[in-house]
Design a protein around this nucleic acid. Structure first.
Lengths: 233, 233
DNA sequence: TAGCTTCCTATACACGTGTACTGTACTCTG
DNA sequence: CAGAGTACAGTACACGTGTATAGGAAGCTA
């Protein structure tokens, strides 16, 4: 059985809320199909029959979780987009911490092809796209790709972190959802995102290479761009 | 049924190879659990019993696929690390294209907690780490995080692309595994990787913010780093 | 040709899982 | 107090899936 949420007191929640929370955790950890109603019910301390009573079906339970995660994420992003953030950094920090489970849930739901999750993804892309367009104005060189494509890649790459958290944790040497692991990841991300992997000149030459005929695919291999970089420099 | 591979002729392959190829595709598309032996057998044009005859069990079939993918990936990376790449860019392009399915398989296997996939992930991290250490020598400022952590994050983010390919495709407007979609992704990745999201000054101030006490977690929220950036500038 | 191995199919079984149904206790309302 | 509606448990069923087993067809060797 998965560990219970540290947040609200287990007994104080209604059975419906306990089921929803347990489903959130099991869907996140094992995926929609492998998570079983029986296990979720056991984690919530109720009978399997009660799950059906409250939610009707497993699919409806998923949708309830989707709606709950959507609400949590939207609430956070609305808050972030307001000016509150700079004035109350501490509370935003806590909110972000609270948000971790929902990010993991979202990543898993996207893999499990949830409709609602796909909509959230598109929302995130739209938000990122707006930010990119704003940032583009301060760039000396014009972007060589549309903002939507860049935004989608950034969101997907960001979601790669919670998706492969256990493998990252192995390399980092601490669970990235623990305080220590989270701190190391934050530092590493800060470093990675403040140093571009490809120099503008290399990018230009690679871009020229893309236009040449032959196999229509470009030089965009994951895993390899860093290696390619030093070869060129 | 999934589309057959365009590569080798379907009828020319041995039944064992057809089963392995079909399993590769189904494991990639639906994950290990949801992919069924019966569907794999149907896609391979054989009976379910033959799958057991050749591989013994579903788990053993998975390991065979893992070994096959590992071989393909290692073959490619060995080739990339040699000097061949610059002298034969075309062939490497084709190799990378051939590699796409294996990258997708790897990403899915990592989610499905395959032992072998985890080893491949660690190998990729080690390779990326070596490249980072080499690149660090040319940096004016010292890295604020160890190379292993940065490498793990880079690999995980890179794997986010094949993992969420269908959602990226929606934003890009074309299947990212098609020639046109792949070209757009290549351009967008070139642009993203040649322009750092965070300026060094902002990174420094954010880093200082990490050290302050309070909620132990750092400012590393996915989805939000780009927005935070312009707020600070 | 005889015998053996390998490739392959078809059938059967055990098990887990989602779902439906029945029954029971509790609560709320008039 | 009476009745209804709700929250819950327990059981039963249908179905899909991995696996085991038996048996047949094809090719190879002596």
């Amino acid at each position: 059985m998965l560990a219970e949420r540290g947040g609200a007191a287990f007994e104080d929640l209604t059975a419906r809320a306990r089921i929803r929370d347990a489903a959130l955790r099991y869907f996140t950890e094992y995926g929609f199909t492998q998570a079983t109603i029986r296990e979720i019910a056991r984690a919530a301390g109720v009978s399997p029959g009660l799950v059906r009573h409250h939610f009707g079906s497993k699919e409806a339970l998923r949708q309830a979780c989707d709606a709950y995660a959507l609400e949590a994420l939207h609430g956070f992003y609305d808050q972030t987009l307001n000016g509150d953030r700079l004035s109350h950094p501490r509370s935003t920090m806590d909110a972000r911490h609270t948000l971790h489970p929902f990010q993991r849930y979202l990543a898993r739901a996207l893999i499990d092809e949830s409709e609602a999750a796909a909509r959230i993804f598109d929302d995130l892309v739209a938000m990122t796209e707006r930010s990119l367009i704003q940032a583009d104005r301060q760039r000396p060189d014009p972007p060589i790709a549309d903002a939507a494509s860049r935004a989608a890649l950034m969101v997907a790459m960001a979601l790669g972190i919670p998706t492969f958290h256990q493998h990252i944790s192995r390399a980092v040497g601490a669970d990235i959802f623990s305080d220590e692991g989270d701190r190391r990841v934050a530092l590493a991300l800060l470093d990675v995102h403040s140093h571009s992997v490809i120099s503008p000149e290399t990018a230009a030459s690679l871009r020229d290479g893309l236009d040449e005929p032959g196999s229509g695919s470009g030089n965009r291999a994951p895993f390899t761009h860093s290696q390619e970089e030093h070869r060129h420099e």
